[in-house]
């Protein structure tokens, strides 16, 4: 079987992958190559096709077209075999409310056909990893949001997966809980696991992911490292200007000093390689205030996907 060979380098290999609902392409012929051992981020506004893409990767929904291989298994043909080697942290919590923490892990492990002393050892390991040892006998409804997420992560690790798929893993968590989860995910990366995650938080993607694909309208608009995306898609410096009369200033002066300027709400965003002229100009206008900062992933994201609200 050529499986091992092809899988050696890429955890996921998709070509022309598409999903069509009622004649509308939700995922529109994307190509995706995700090397093993990497943390790969899938970014995009609501409805961009991220979750549908993840569902296809897992064999949870059949593609309308294209070819897909995950861990060397053709999907959906061998989805079941593939899933035995994958862990999933879904967007919506689906812990069993009738079971305690440890029972949740045992029952979920039974779906993988795992039981016995080896499983009990594994349960101890994942509980320890998620820092939930002391909650082993607790009921699910007594856990905080952060604990539930950590338990969901522990559950996803029960089969010692090679690939971990996380759909918005930190949505709704407080900063402490999020930091804690990031730390756990970094540990998993250090262990050589492949991570694929979707997120709405740019700083999360920037900190965790080595590679990022920005999706919108079912297509991949750009794919690179976080630094590469910023370098390739946007001017390196941003000046945000606000204050009374910013509208007049925007109309008359803003674009004479920088490559690109946008007026959104109360703020003018100026993008430039060289901001000296702009800053000199602003120094003469005490009624305007400004923030000068390096461009970040959010700037790239908004440039690529636009600023329209998606509900």
């Amino acid at each position: 079987m050529p499986q091992a060979a092809s899988y050696g380098r890429n955890a996921v290999c998709a070509r022309g992958l598409s999903k069509i609902y009622n004649g509308t392409p939700v995922v529109d012929g994307i190509a995706l190559t995700i090397p093993t051992g990497l943390c790969f981020g899938l970014l995009g506004p609501n409805g961009a096709g991220k979750t549908t893409t993840l569902r296809m990767l897992l064999g949870a929904t059949d593609p309308s077209g294209g070819t897909l291989e995950v861990l060397g298994h053709p999907v959906p043909a061998q989805a079941r075999e593939m899933r035995a080697r994958v862990g999933v942290v879904p967007q919506q919590d689906n812990l069993d409310p009738d079971f305690s923490v440890i029972e949740n892990l045992r029952v979920y492990a039974s779906y993988f056909g795992l039981s016995g002393p080896a499983l009990e050892r594994r349960i101890e390991e994942v509980l320890h990893f998620a820092e939930l040892d002391y909650k082993a006998r607790a009921g699910i409804n007594t856990l905080s949001g952060g604990m539930k997420r950590r338990l969901t992560l522990a559950r996803a690790l029960i089969n010692d997966p090679e690939l971990l798929i996380l759909d918005e893993p930190t949505t709704g968590l407080d900063p402490q809980a999020r930091q804690m989860l990031w730390q756990r995910l970094r540990t998993l990366m250090a262990q050589g696991k492949t991570l694929i995650l979707t997120t709405h938080y740019m700083e999360e993607a920037e900190r965790l992911c080595q590679r990022i694909a920005v999706m919108d309208h079912g297509r991949i608009l750009a794919e690179d490292s976080p630094a590469g995306l910023i370098e390739r898609h946007i001017e390196p410096q941003v000046v945000e200007v606000y204050g009374s009369d910013v509208q007049t200033w925007f109309n008359s002066h803003a674009r004479t000093h920088v490559e690109r300027a946008e007026h959104i709400g109360e703020t003018v965003f100026c993008y430039a390689h060289d901001t000296r002229a702009l800053l000199d100009d602003l120094a003469t206008r005490p009624q305007l205030r400004y923030i000068h900062r390096p461009a970040n992933l959010e700037d790239v994201f908004l440039k690529l996907t636009g600023r329209d609200l998606r509900d």
Partner: peptide, 14 residues
């Protein structure tokens, strides 16, 4: 409501 089946379908069950 509980998405119990969703969890099973993320494991090797059909």
């Amino acid at each position: 409501h509980q998405q119990t089946w969703g969890g099973m379908l993320a494991a090797p069950l059909m």
